[in-house]
Simulated assay, not measured.
Amino acid sequence: MASSSSSSSSTQTKKIYLTAANGELFEVEEPVAMEMETVKSFFDFGNEDTTKDMILPMLNVSAEHMSAILDFYRKHLEFRKRIPPPSAEEVKAFDHAFLENKSNEQLKELIMAANFLNTKELLDFLTDATAKRIKNKSVEYVRAFFEIENDFTPEEEAKIRAENEWAFDGVDED
């Protein structure tokens, strides 16, 4: 059993068990699991037979992304509980390190996992990071990033570019 729980001073914390798409089991502290509305709604549904000992399958989330998401929320919950609160620079440094080695493909997959898990804070953070990655990029870069097929003919595209020349000023090199 792969356990992604971090050690804490309180061994009394209830655990929620989640399985990733590949079947890897994650033992998750209840406060961390409750950051995911998909998990939370299962327990808030009012089903009296629901126990925290159940294993919830998260079939749309890979083990790699589940682990990253759990790490993100463990750290952000720690930040929220800290007295005095951490500096904005410390939070930004963690967030930067979280994304530092993520490829565009990994970022998009994390967004899909965060969306499936309905984790607003992380989803907002990831979509903002995506916006920053595509800011001032060429149309070709953005198409490649989102895997969008160009359905314009070369003539149509040339006409649109000519009519909207201003939109291409200041575009970064890809």
Score class of each variant (00 low, 15 high):
Leu110Asp: 03
Asp44Val: 00
Ser62Cys: 06
Val61His: 01
Phe116Ser: 01
Leu77Asp: 05
Phe146Arg: 06
Lys137Phe: 03
Asp95His: 05
Pro84Val: 03
Tyr141Ser: 12
Ala114Pro: 10
Val61Arg: 00
Glu78Trp: 07
Glu156Val: 14
Asp95Ile: 07
Ser3Lys: 14
Leu70Gln: 04
Leu70Arg: 02
Val139Ser: 11
Glu100Ala: 01
Arg133Lys: 13
Phe79Val: 05
Glu147Trp: 08
Asp95Met: 04
Pro31Glu: 12
Thr153Ile: 13
Asn115Glu: 06
Met34Trp: 14
Thr19Phe: 08
Ile69Pro: 06
Glu163Arg: 03
Lys132Pro: 05
Val142Ala: 09
Phe79Asp: 02
Thr51Pro: 14
Val171Phe: 13
Ile69His: 04
Asp172Phe: 15
Phe146Tyr: 15
Ala131Lys: 09
Ala63Met: 11
Ile134Gly: 04
Asp172Tyr: 15
Glu29Arg: 10
Asn47Arg: 02
Pro86Phe: 10
Arg143Ala: 12
Ile111Cys: 03
Leu99Asn: 06
Asn115Phe: 00
Gln12Thr: 15
Ile83Thr: 08
Ala68Lys: 08
Ile83Tyr: 02
Phe168Pro: 10
Lys40Asn: 12
Glu64Asn: 12
Glu89His: 05
Arg133Ala: 01
Val171Gly: 12
Ala97Arg: 00
Glu163Pro: 06
Leu70Met: 03
Glu29Lys: 14
Glu37Asn: 13
Ser9Pro: 02
Arg82Gln: 09
Tyr141Val: 10
Ala68Arg: 10
Arg80Glu: 12
Ala162Cys: 01
Leu117Lys: 10
Pro85Ile: 08
Phe98Thr: 04
His96Phe: 04
Ala131Arg: 09
Asp49Thr: 10
Ser5Glu: 09
Asp128Pro: 03
Ala88Thr: 13
Met66Cys: 00
Leu25Met: 14
Glu37Gln: 15
Ala129Glu: 00
Glu27Ile: 09
Glu155Cys: 05
Asp95Pro: 06
Ile55His: 02
Phe42His: 14
Phe168Tyr: 13
His65Ala: 04
Asn47His: 11
Leu117Thr: 05
Leu77Gly: 05
Met66Ser: 06
Glu48Met: 10
Glu64Asp: 12
Ile16Ser: 05
Gly46Gln: 15
Lys137Cys: 08
Glu165His: 06
Glu147Cys: 13
Leu99Asp: 03
Pro31Gly: 11
Ala113Trp: 02
Lys159Gly: 07
Asp53Ile: 07
Glu100Gln: 00
Ser3Gln: 14
Leu99Tyr: 01
Asn101Ile: 02
Lys92Ser: 09
Ala114Ile: 00
Glu165Pro: 02
Glu140Lys: 06
Asn104Tyr: 00
Ser4Val: 10
Ala21Val: 11
Lys40Leu: 13
Glu64Tyr: 01
Ser67Ala: 13
Gly46Ile: 10
Asp124Tyr: 03
Glu121Arg: 00
Glu48Ile: 11
Glu173Phe: 08
Phe43Thr: 11
Val32Asn: 02
Met112Tyr: 00
Met36Leu: 09
Thr11Met: 10
Thr19Val: 12
Ala114His: 08
Asp49Gln: 12
Glu121Ile: 07
Asn150Arg: 11
Glu90Phe: 08
Met112Ala: 04
Asp169Trp: 12
Ile111Lys: 05
Lys135Trp: 08
Pro31Ala: 13
Glu89Arg: 00
Glu35Arg: 15
Ala113Cys: 01
Arg133Pro: 00
Leu110Met: 02
Glu24Ile: 13
Phe98Lys: 07
Asn164Ala: 09
Ala158Ser: 12
Asn104Pro: 08
Ser103Thr: 14
Glu165Leu: 07
Asn22Gln: 14
Ser6Val: 08
Ser87Val: 05
